[in-house]
Nucleic acid binder design. Structure first.
Length: 424
DNA sequence: TCTGGGGTCCTAGGACCC
DNA sequence: TCTGGGGTCCTAGGACCC
């Protein structure tokens, strides 16, 4: 039997912000999404002030004014950097590791050890705290879903060790009784509502439900969750992540956009970023989609949401071809009377670079293909070396359209020499 | 006045084939 | 007047996750 430990960093983004500003620890901190729109991370002190996850920032401005809440724009290069340090430590302390998200990983622990799982987990926790400065919670169980349950309880144990093990049936049942059904991994808001309508409120209620009823109403996905609650292993640990299948770059705008030219600049910008991303992953796309939409929160304006997908002639990650198709798609869905609030470019059906059939009717000489590849390389090298946006397509205007509002950005402590913290 | 971004998987239904 | 049965593949939309 497997033992799965789920390690989850507490309030990850907020914790990252305090590493280089230790005077902020134990203070209420929030981190905002792009455009400084929503709250996407809160320190536990901020949670206690009643600041909810995902809430629009403007709705908590009063609280921020009243209490000394420290506000940060999201600093993804910092968080990514801290994350890889954490994962590096975890890798040294388990048999197998699945990096599940920027702040979470599933560990398979070797069963044969003199120390208990709990004491090993406590050791891991201490090291991460000391070496990197991030607090973590650890849940230990027989499968992923139950390790998520254990982790949930560990998170609540703020004054204790924040390591929780649920292995035997009694521990499992007690744990499920104190969690709401919506707290279960895989049960989202929609299904939670449906279950509550059917008198299933706690995780334990679902655990006790009729398996046929679960299969019938929640489908195979729900059935897997149900079985995992009962200790079966249905969701495997995936060590080496599969290559990505799609890559999306999209942004909400700070103001309404109506003109085609303005929209086009943004689409070129997103297409550029998306093609850069798949080139750096060694992938190419078969399809490209451009989408645009009005403000879904404002019903006073006319609602409009449209997308257009094209197939590349042959799979591509070429900058100029990507831009060409993205703009072509934009032209086909653009309507001048709409106030747009968000747009994006999606590259999908990704395959490893170089894997394709030549198109019978679209002949390109070897020479011209190689030339395109060289141009893309130069483009990427310049931007990698001197910073994103150093070179861009003339129509794009990088500064203005890719960067969104980030008024409270912390320094790039770990990725820019000029921002290195000083020690006095 | 102000509401993120980027992924995955599953299913139902349509198009098409023999 | 009466019009089959059984597949596959693709896509859009819905649900979920962090």
């Amino acid at each position: 039997m497997n033992i799965v430990a789920l390690v989850d960093c507490n309030s990850f983004y907020a914790s990252c912000e305090t590493i280089f500003k230790p005077d902020l620890s134990k203070k209420p901190i929030v981190v905002l999404s792009n455009n400084d729109g929503c709250v996407i991370a809160r320190s536990s002190e901020a949670k206690k002030l009643g600041i909810k996850m995902g809430i629009p920032f403007f709705e908590i401005k009063q609280i921020v004014k009243k209490y000394p809440v420290h506000v940060f724009s999201s600093n993804y290069s910092l968080y990514g950097n801290i994350s890889s340090r954490v994962m590096g430590v975890l890798k040294e302390h388990c048999d197998r590791l699945e990096i599940y998200s920027i702040d979470e990983a599933f560990l398979i622990l070797n069963k044969y050890s003199e120390r208990s799982f709990v004491s090993r987990a406590e050791g891991i926790k201490k090291i991460i705290r000391k070496w990197i400065g991030v607090p973590v919670s650890i849940g230990i169980a027989n499968n992923k879903t139950l390790s998520k349950v254990a982790n949930r309880l560990a998170k609540k144990d703020e004054l204790g060790s924040q390591v929780v093990e649920i292995i035997n049936q009694k521990q499992i049942e007690i744990s499920l009784k104190v969690l709401g059904v919506g707290d279960i991994w895989g049960i989202g808001a929609r299904i939670e509502k449906f279950l509550q309508k059917n008198s299933i409120y706690t995780a334990y209620d679902l655990y006790k439900a009729d398996p046929r009823w679960v299969r019938q109403h929640l489908g195979v996905v729900g059935e897997r969750t149900y079985r995992e609650l009962h200790g079966e292993i249905c969701i495997p640990i995936v060590e080496r992540s599969e290559p990505k299948k799609q890559c999306r770059v999209s942004r909400s705008f700070e103001n309404y956009v109506t003109s085609f030219q303005d929209l086009e600049k943004r689409i070129i910008s997103y297409a550029t970023r998306a093609s850069e991303k798949i080139r750096s992953d060694g992938l190419q796309a078969k399809k490209i989609t451009t989408f645009i939409r009005s403000n879904k929160f404002n019903n006073n304006n006319k609602q409009y949401h449209a997308a257009q997908t094209y197939d590349f002639i042959s799979p591509s990650n070429d900058l100029f071809e990507t831009i060409k198709f993205a703009v072509k798609a934009l032209k086909s869905i653009y309507r001048p009377e709409i106030k747009y609030k968000k747009a994006g470019v999606l590259l999908s059906d990704l395959t490893p670079e170089g894997e394709y059939n030549r198109d019978l009717f679209f002949y390109q000489s070897e020479e011209s293909i190689l030339k395109k590849i060289r141009v893309n390389k130069v483009f990427d090298n310049l931007n990698n070396r001197y910073g994103s946006g150093t070179i861009c397509v003339a129509k794009e205007n990088y500064e203005k359209f890719y960067i969104t509002r980030r008024q409270n950005l912390s320094p790039a402590y770990t990725s820019n020499f000029d921002d290195l913290p000083n020690v006095n």
